[in-house]
């Protein structure tokens, strides 16, 4: 288990400042969402954590060790499923683990079952529906040995019905395996439904505008989405985003 600490992170590209003094943390086993409009530097943040960019200022720590510029410290689920077309689903889901050593095939099979993908284990990704591909991509991230899971708008390309199914499924799987999760989204509802904490960013450059900690009990049933409490939170967050600072 690990915790992630982001300390006063700043990053510019040329004269354009993208991230400005971002600080937050993800505690062990916590689900934290980053909520912000498109182009708010969310992907830049992930690229920094992923070690693909170097920050101008600030530090990124996992278990108190700086991981600035180090690749492969988190497991990752991108926006599109990014499954490898020439690998079967089984081979695809162990890829993340394969990059770091020997994958645990028994665990992989167990996860496939939980995702309802056992029957397509030997199929190629082209045969799967969008939702199935996303589940496979999520399992691939879960099976990776790193304890921090970074999900980059994983459900934004799905239709509303599939998205709701996927959110419920993700919650149930996550509650079993309980890794620390950093989740990027631009949907208020999704952030509220899934997370322990929500970090709201504003744009140009990205600064932390507010942090919300809705304490809904887990496990969370889908009915939660329609409760007055939930809607009140949604309104509060919406108003925070709309107010200028």
């Amino acid at each position: 288990m690990s915790n992630l600490v982001i300390k006063q992170l700043s990053k510019s590209f040329g004269s354009k400042k993208v991230l400005d003094q971002i600080s937050f943390d993800v505690k062990v086993g916590e689900f934290v969402s980053i909520l912000g409009p498109s182009g708010s530097g969310k992907s830049t943040l992930f690229n920094l954590i992923g070690g693909r960019y170097l920050p101008d200022q600030g530090d990124i720590l996992i278990d108190n060790k700086s991981i600035v510029g180090k690749a492969g410290q988190m497991s990752y689920m991108p926006q599109s499923p990014s499954l490898f077309p020439w690998r079967t689903i089984m081979k695809n889901i162990v890829l993340g683990a394969e990059l770091k050593g020997k994958p645990d095939l028994a665990l992989a099979e167990q996860m496939l079952k939980k995702a309802g993908l056992t029957e397509v284990a030997d199929a190629y990704p082209s045969a799967l529906s969008g939702g199935m591909k996303q589940r496979a991509a999520f399992i691939r991230a879960l099976l990776s040995p790193q304890d921090l899971l970074c999900l980059d708008e994983p459900f934004s390309a799905l239709d509303e019905f599939t998205r709701l199914d996927m959110q419920n499924w993700l919650l149930s799987v996550w509650e079993t395996y309980r890794k620390s999760v950093l989740f990027i989204t631009h949907s208020i509802e999704e952030a509220l439904y899934l997370s322990d904490r929500i970090v709201i960013l504003n744009t140009n450059p990205a600064r932390i505008k507010a942090v919300f900690e809705p304490k809904f009990e887990r496990p969370r049933p889908p009915e939660l989405l329609l409760t007055d409490d939930f809607l009140a939170w949604k309104r509060r967050i919406y108003q925070t985003i709309k107010t200028d600072d």
Binding site: F46, N47, G50, G51, R52, A71, G72, Q73, M74, S75, Y76, P78, S80, S82, F84, L95, G96, L99, K100, S144, C150
Partner: peptide, 15 residues
């Protein structure tokens, strides 16, 4: 897309 995944997942050049 796949390249991005590999880099984020920390794959080496060889991998």
């Amino acid at each position: 897309e796949l390249m991005h995944y590999m880099q984020m997942a920390g794959a080496s050049k060889r991998q």
